[in-house]
């Protein structure tokens, strides 16, 4: 490390990148299930009707987190 560098990150930056990338999907999945629980609590008979949309939303959001893992491995530098 030469004198002009004030701070350096050692190890895998891909891990840090994935940590950052997981924030969004984490919040998103939380929102999806929070909304489902809330709607089911308010109107229990709607649970079967809303469940398919829960899985669509979950799949689309979770895909981002999984892509984060995959890209972290593929282009780990």
């Amino acid at each position: 490390m030469d004198a002009s560098v004030l701070a350096a990150v050692e190890g895998s930056t891909a891990a840090i990148g994935y940590g950052l990338a997981a924030i969004g999907p984490g919040i998103g999945v939380g929102l999806v299930f929070a909304a489902y629980i809330q709607s089911t609590a308010r109107q229990p008979e709607s649970s079967r009707m809303t469940l398919p949309y829960v899985w669509i939303g979950f799949a689309v959001i979770e895909a981002l987190a999984l892509l984060g893992i995959a890209f972290g491995f593929i282009w780990a530098g």
Binding site: P52, Y53, W55, F58, L67, A70, F71, I74, W75
Partner: peptide, 25 residues
């Protein structure tokens, strides 16, 4: 190519989830 494959596979996975679980019964 690996990246393209992963994105394609993810799209396929989403389609499967939508078809299998995401159709209102």
């Amino acid at each position: 190519a690996t990246g393209i494959g992963v994105v394609l596979g993810m799209a396929g996975g989403i389609i499967l989830v939508v078809r299998r679980l995401g159709t209102p019964t």
